[in-house]
Amino acid sequence: MLTFTKEVRGNVLVLSLKGNLDAITVPELKPEIDNIVSERKTAVVVDLSGLTLIDSSGVGAIVSLFKRVRALSGDVKVAGVTAQPKEIFRLLRLDRAFDIHPTIEEAVAKFPR
């Protein structure tokens, strides 16, 4: 099961994911990713502190968001990766590819005001 919420902090959109992001739940998130891109959000934080499990499909969804926002000359930062998702990020070297921060606040602060 996946739940997600959106919150605006200044000029930054924070997308918080809770539960599992995997082959089963990614189709629920894809329309939201499409919305973020179509609304041309260029400063996005993906908060994964509530994420308990991710698989390769979930990774693909986050990478897709990252690349599409980058294509708008924006940036995506990741916050709060722990437990199994952290292990997957480490294994796939996404901890080097993404700008990852311990908390939402720290990730938001990295965007220019």
């Binding site: 698989d55 390769s56 990774v59 693909g60 990478v63 897709s64 990252f66 690349k67 980058r70 294509a71 997957i88 294994l91 796939l92 070297r93 996404l94 080097r96 590819a97």
Partner: peptide, 22 residues
């Protein structure tokens, strides 16, 4: 998969078998 990608070169797929083998 090529894990050396950064920025827009990060691969969106091809990780499943790699995760199994790892």
């Amino acid at each position: 998969p090529d894990l050396s990608g950064v920025g827009s070169d990060v691969s969106e797929g091809g990780y499943g078998l790699f995760i199994m083998r790892s």
